[in-house]
């Protein structure tokens, strides 16, 4: 097995195009265990961390760009980012452990394509876009378009994500991500629930996006819950409808971490709680900050 560390996007794409059995990696927190267990055996390992734009975080007036290989620790440590996207920042802060977060990245968390990846529901509710580089230049995908099933993505073998674009959080908007794991850290989500809401001037909900992780082969949106929230003030009855819609949107597996029944039930509980937190955050975000 060969290790290469290209220093530019072009160098990386040409390497990938010329090596049919190549595997890109960022922090390698998923790749190393896969190599050790023999689940993957690439001939070439391509380290993306030496490419400058993949490890940068920038913000202009309209959007943030987060390099795909940037350690997630940056997102939890960056006060301005975590103030604007507390839900996404907290989701990134749940990956693995403190040590892992010095290596793990949004790009890796997404492209590993685990149904339980913590950052993905939080990216989906925030409408994050992935800028994908390939031999013919770049294309832009919604994060929700990248993963098609466990371990499966829409990226070609010679493509990789360069960076993520995140539009600035509008006024009167807030996000949240909650997950359930049996262990408080170093564990894999049994259920994850992300929510983002925007409030109208009268306090009613103008926009709502909800997404669940670990309850289906890919992250799932909950259109019925989003619909139920629109125009409401998230009264108890609406929240119960959100919970019911979240439970109904699940298509989970039974495994050692949780039964189908448990995942469905807790998806409802967490979706409801995430909405409440997102609303509280939206209320505090009233234009002055």
């Amino acid at each position: 097995m060969k290790y290469v560390a290209p220093s530019s996007v072009e160098e990386a794409t040409s390497l990938l195009s010329s090596s049919p059995s190549a595997q890109v990696f960022a922090g390698a927190t998923d790749v190393v265990p896969q190599l050790r267990s023999g689940r993957t055996a690439p001939e070439v390992l391509v380290d993306l961390k030496k490419i400058k734009e993949l490890v940068e975080v920038n913000s202009d007036g309209d959007k943030w760009t987060v390099g795909a290989a940037t350690p997630t620790a940056y997102l939890t440590e960056d006060e301005s980012f975590s103030h604007e996207f507390p839900g996404l920042s907290e989701a990134a802060g749940l990956i693995g452990s403190d040590q892992i977060q010095n290596r793990s990245s949004l790009g890796g968390n997404l492209c590993n394509a685990s149904p339980a990846a913590d950052s993905v529901p939080a990216m989906v509710v925030n409408g994050v876009r992935a800028v994908v580089a390939g031999p013919n230049g770049t294309r832009v995908l919604d994060v929700s378009e990248v993963v098609t099933g466990p371990g499966q993505t829409t990226l070609d073998d010679d493509e990789f994500i360069v960076e993520f674009e995140i539009d600035k959080m509008p006024n009167r908007s807030g996000d949240a991500y909650l997950r359930m794991t049996p262990r408080t850290e170093m564990d894999i989500a049994v259920v994850g629930a992300g929510a983002r809401v925007t409030l109208a001037d009268d306090g009613s909900i103008e926009q709502a996006v909800l997404a669940l992780g670990a309850v289906a082969p890919t992250v799932v949106r909950i259109p019925d819950a989003e619909q139920a929230l629109l125009g409401s003030t998230a009264d108890e009855e609406t929240l119960n409808a959100v919970a019911a819609a979240a439970s109904a949107a699940c298509n989970p597996i039974d495994d050692k971490r949780g039964t189908v029944e448990y995942r469905k039930q807790v998806a409802g509980v967490l979706a409801k709680r995430a909405v409440v937190i997102a609303i509280e955050r939206a209320e505090q975000r009233n234009g002055s900050n």
Binding site: E90, G93, A176, L178, R179, T181, T184
Partner: peptide
């Protein structure tokens, strides 16, 4: 709360 930074329910 399972996530220390968040308020408990």
């Amino acid at each position: 709360a399972p996530i220390a930074s968040l308020p408990a329910e």
